[in-house]
Simulated scan of single mutants.
Amino acid sequence: MAGNRGQNKNVRLSKNLSEMKFMQRRVKKDAEEELESEKQRQIDDDHWVLDLPDLISKGNRYETVDSMADCEDLVFGRMSFKGMNPVIEKVMRIMNGEEEEEEEELEEKAEGVTEEEMANRYSSLVGTIGKKFDKKRIHSQTDVDAPRKKHKKKFLKPPDE
């Protein structure tokens, strides 16, 4: 009987069966669906549609931009100079490309100490620091050429007469 609901409208159910709650709910639901479809049909009939040719979309005249960097033609959003923010400077170097990195490396080499200068300075420091840790006797023997320090004069007690 459930399969024949929509097909056979002439089937009459007994009065007792049609008065049961589940049957009344079903009848009410069917009536609401039919009323809803009738309303939709009425709206479709009343709805006016203009038969105009499709307008060619010109596209959006305005462009929305989230960042001021694009408006001002800035390469970087945040900038840093002379080591104030090393993280941002590193990002700037990466975005600029390798050319500027090579230039910075050359500048660092020019400002820094060359390997030869470092070796000369290190060799002279080894002797100087080595002298510092020598014992006093060994230190005095190695500095024979160096002028001796004059000892401070101490108070001399006058002889007893």
Rank of each mutant, 00 (worst) to 15 (best):
C71S: 13
S123G: 07
D66W: 03
K150C: 06
V87R: 11
K90V: 07
S80C: 03
E33R: 08
I94T: 14
G83F: 05
L156A: 04
S18G: 02
W48Y: 09
H151N: 13
Q42P: 00
I43K: 13
A110S: 09
F22N: 06
A2S: 08
M95S: 06
C71W: 10
K131W: 06
E103K: 05
V113E: 13
E116Y: 05
R25N: 12
N10M: 02
K132T: 04
E33S: 09
E72I: 12
R41S: 07
R121C: 09
N10K: 11
R93D: 13
W48L: 04
E117F: 11
A119C: 12
G130H: 03
Q42L: 11
R25K: 14
S57M: 08
A110R: 13
M118A: 10
E111Q: 03
D160F: 05
M79L: 10
Q40G: 02
R12A: 06
G127Q: 10
K153F: 03
T142Y: 08
H151P: 01
W48S: 00
F22C: 04
I94A: 14
N85G: 01
W48K: 05
R78P: 00
A119Q: 15
M95A: 11
G59K: 05
N120Y: 07
E102W: 10
Y122R: 13
C71M: 15
E32M: 06
L52T: 12
E38S: 05
K150E: 14
S57V: 02
E33K: 04
D30Y: 03
L55T: 15
E102T: 12
E100L: 06
P158R: 06
Q24Y: 01
K153H: 08
H139A: 13
D54S: 08
S18E: 09
L13N: 09
P159F: 02
M68G: 13
E107Y: 02
T142G: 09
K152W: 02
F76H: 05
Y122P: 00
K29D: 01
E19T: 10
N8W: 02
G6F: 04
V11R: 04
E34K: 08
K109G: 02
K109W: 03
P86N: 10
E34V: 03
E108V: 02
C71R: 15
S57T: 05
H139K: 15
L50Y: 12
M1R: 06
L125V: 03
H151E: 15
S18M: 12
E111K: 05
K15M: 01
E99A: 15
E161G: 01
S37V: 05
F81V: 12
S67C: 06
A69M: 06
N120G: 11
S67R: 08
E32V: 02
N10S: 09
E63W: 05
N16D: 13
M84A: 12
L156W: 02
Q40F: 03
P159K: 07
P147K: 06
V49P: 00
L74T: 04
D160A: 13
H151T: 14
S80H: 01
D145P: 00
R5M: 07
M95F: 03
L17Q: 12
E161A: 08
E105S: 11
L55I: 15
P159N: 05
A119F: 11
V113T: 14
E102L: 14
G3H: 03
E99F: 14
R25D: 09
K149W: 04
L55M: 15
E36G: 00
N60M: 08
V126A: 11
V65C: 09
E115W: 10
R93W: 07
L52W: 10
K21R: 09
E115Y: 07
T142Q: 14
